[in-house]
Simulated assay, not measured.
Amino acid sequence: MDETVKSTIIETVVARAKDLRPSIHIGSKYGGTIFVTDPEFPDSVSLVGGVYGYKDYVSVEFSKGAGFDDPNGLLAGKGKARRHVKLHSLGDIDAMNVAGFLSQAFA
């Protein structure tokens, strides 16, 4: 994946997160950008997810995604709680319902 495309996808996901929840705190951890509801507790229940750039895609990860409403089966992962979507293009942000999953993460 082209680095410019990757950066644009990440920036767009972060902007959507800020639009959906203006009070969300953005931080850097685990090699990516994380979303926390309370910066005093970034590693506990406050960490709701993040966005990470990899060689061939961008992953948007949700700490409690296993409990999300996902009627189209877009979320991947088999962990006890975490789920993610892989984005290969800017259009995947809408196609993979990133805003809907971010809304659920912030609820």
Rank of each mutant, 00 (worst) to 15 (best):
E61N: 08
F68T: 07
D2M: 08
S89Q: 11
R82Q: 13
A17R: 06
R83E: 00
F41C: 10
S44R: 15
G77D: 06
S46E: 12
I34T: 15
V45W: 10
N72D: 13
G67V: 00
R21M: 10
G32Q: 03
Y52P: 00
S44Y: 10
H25V: 15
G100S: 03
P22V: 10
I10V: 12
T8D: 09
H88P: 03
M1I: 09
I9A: 11
N72V: 10
G77M: 10
N97M: 08
A107T: 12
T8G: 11
I93W: 00
V58L: 11
P42N: 10
F62P: 01
D2L: 09
S44Q: 14
D56C: 06
V36K: 15
L20T: 11
Y57N: 05
L90P: 08
S59G: 02
E61D: 12
F62I: 06
S103H: 08
H88G: 09
R16I: 03
D38N: 12
T8R: 13
Y52T: 03
S59Q: 01
G49V: 15
Y57C: 10
V48K: 08
S63H: 02
H88I: 02
I26K: 06
V13L: 04
V5Y: 10
K6W: 01
G77Y: 08
S28N: 06
V58P: 03
G27W: 01
L87Y: 07
P42W: 10
V98I: 09
V51R: 08
Y54A: 11
F35Q: 05
S46Q: 14
K6D: 06
D19R: 13
L20F: 03
M1W: 13
T33K: 13
A81T: 11
E61I: 08
V60H: 02
S59A: 01
Y54K: 08
N97F: 02
K6R: 07
Y54H: 15
L102S: 07
P42E: 14
Y52H: 04
V85L: 13
I24R: 04
T4M: 04
V36I: 14
L75M: 00
